[in-house]
Design a protein around this nucleic acid. Sequence first.
DNA 1: GATCATATTGAGAATGATTCTTGTTCGCAA
DNA 2: TTGCGAACAAGAATCATTCTCAATATGATC
Lengths: 164, 164
Amino acid sequence: MSTPLHRHTHSDEVATGEELHDLVAKRLTERGQRYTSGRRRLIEALVEAEHPMTLPAIVAGSPDVAPSSAYRNLDLLESAGVIRRISSGGDHAHFELAEPLLHHHHHLICVDCGTIVDIHLDDELEDLVDERLSKAAVDAGFTPISHSLDVHGRCPTCTKAASV
Amino acid sequence: MSTPLHRHTHSDEVATGEELHDLVAKRLTERGQRYTSGRRRLIEALVEAEHPMTLPAIVAGSPDVAPSSAYRNLDLLESAGVIRRISSGGDHAHFELAEPLLHHHHHLICVDCGTIVDIHLDDELEDLVDERLSKAAVDAGFTPISHSLDVHGRCPTCTKAASV
DNA sequence: GATCATATTGAGAATGATTCTTGTTCGCAA
DNA sequence: TTGCGAACAAGAATCATTCTCAATATGATC
């Protein structure tokens, strides 16, 4: 027995533009919470960046976002399932849009500077990995929710810097 | 082109007992550092636990280890490649023995309590994943070093607690 | 559109994990 | 032994994160 950890989303299923914000609003409303302008600015920062960002980076790029609110709202958006926290990249956690808003994908993480870049695996391999991991989890008594697959290495910039 | 990220280790290649400590000592000596009793206590705690541990857990279990020394030495052992830091599990980072001292493996991480349990995939799948990830990394200009594969879910205890 | 109850905000204080500092101790080599 | 540098431990300092609370914005209801 092995329940799939996720359903692969295809290009046309990923929300974009106003549609994306509607989906976020819906998620929050369902939980009795509001999609305020502050929260929207956080989501917009993540959409525009097109790669996972740290909290300081988001705050630095959006002058109207107070740090204390950023911490609070990033937590809230995470527990609403709208964004995802990635803890492996260096000092700070990185945030990205969660799966219905973005394709299922994995990460290249630079061990030197912490930069994170998205990568995709083909569906076939993804399904295989998914199935095996679910099985292993269930065998250990765990209830699987999702999986993450990271490659640790050096980004182009740090690779050059290291070879000097 | 895709360089393997790691070589699979087999049972008989994993160092145990005194052999393991010799290997750690060698790694440190190569870097002009000593394998002191304090550092040895940390390694022993990780060997005995048989699963990744947080720093507070290690300190709590080894009365003679001062927190400030634990931080310092865990960092040092990590940069010597003897232990590995896992950042995804809850508030605190977890530590485990690094690969030549332990088989290549992956983790089940409880989203509620942060507990981490090791799992293994068969070599065939492992090689396939490895190859595809390396290719993706190289295509993006990254120099791959290792990969990690985590399943996020609920441990048996927290699964029960959640269903009440 | 005015009012109300409540969710949300943001500035700064409080917390708490991690890192630094310092004087002391230890380990290795001569 | 003796000496030198590495390593140690206790506590101070730092800094990211969380908490507090008065002010504000929001959406529902009239």
